[in-house]
Design a protein around this nucleic acid. Sequence first.
DNA 1: ACCTGAACACCGTTCAAGT
DNA 2: ACCTGAACACCGTTCAAGT
Lengths: 200, 200
Amino acid sequence: MATRRERGAYHHGNLRGALLDEAERALARKGEDALALRAVARAVGVSHAAAYHHFADRDALLRAVAARGFERFAAALSAGAQSAAGDRSFLEMGVAYVRFAVDHPSLFRLMFGPKAARGRHADEALVAASERAFEVLLGGVRRLHREDDEAAVRARAVAAWSFVHGLAALLLDGQLEHAGFSARDAEDAARTVLGGGAMR
Amino acid sequence: MATRRERGAYHHGNLRGALLDEAERALARKGEDALALRAVARAVGVSHAAAYHHFADRDALLRAVAARGFERFAAALSAGAQSAAGDRSFLEMGVAYVRFAVDHPSLFRLMFGPKAARGRHADEALVAASERAFEVLLGGVRRLHREDDEAAVRARAVAAWSFVHGLAALLLDGQLEHAGFSARDAEDAARTVLGGGAMR
DNA sequence: ACCTGAACACCGTTCAAGT
DNA sequence: ACCTGAACACCGTTCAAGT
């Protein structure tokens, strides 16, 4: 739980981790576009060229942040599903999905953005982390429809995933404000829309 | 239908339009991040400072491109809906939605990205264009469920929109390749997933 | 009204050199 | 093995000045 402030520890310590922490903070504060590799290195107290010893380039740093995001995302989905029993469990997973997106908008956009999409092959950790999140979702579908075969489970999972992902993305963009749903009360919106019968 | 090539016409002609055309091309070719205002001006044959006479900054140029995108998007949805009759009309609108996303990935991401979201208030044309697209969607829902009152129509529209938007976004990211759906055969994927019973 | 050239403060990336 | 300083080629944005 080492925070910044302590100098000298980085120089032969965990620079990679420190860069990731700072990049995540910068992402949350200023968004993906405004995140500068040089500024991250500066904040950590190291030369900008030092970062290239731990990440191939700026994109690789961002992909590593995205991979971490997927880990926390999967954990949040699990926690959501476990917060209720029976049929409501799946709904709560959807609510957790939307809540994560709205609570960490820049991280969520990074995780599902072009950087992460294009570099999927290149980044093992990213693929593994996003697959883990998908597994959590599959688990939820299996508990809901025990009788289905594997193909049917995947088809249901894709449909459910599309539904909740679209809702999260549109809320994030403020695109549903025409329809009276704002990102501020995203949790209510999620319960209303996801619970409205289209999900089963 | 004036293309580039003709020099001298810009100098007291339609520079704004030329910049938009070129920005759209650059967006499609290299993506949002790599689109440089200076490069756009250069390609059009004008000094980079000239662009600031027509757009407040780079973000404003991108928002204008997004607004144009929404116009074409609305037209594509209409055309899709008109390509079939009865209940199938709504499905075809969804297929057109996904096809647009996959055919113009960078434009689609721009339209629904943070730039467009944050600057919504600032950009009248963008809000108007995206509302027009939403109206097309509402029209489709109304034809499908004539008996519903306005609130029910909006709720159905939000659910349907979320579903199809999520599918489009996940296909774009290659996130559904685990499940056997690739962006290459997006149209088949759209028919399978959207037609699979979750939409009604 | 519309466009230019020069200037400023920042980037991402590379590379020889230091410990 | 890990980090630095200097250098390169590029940005976005501003502003006085030109027509």
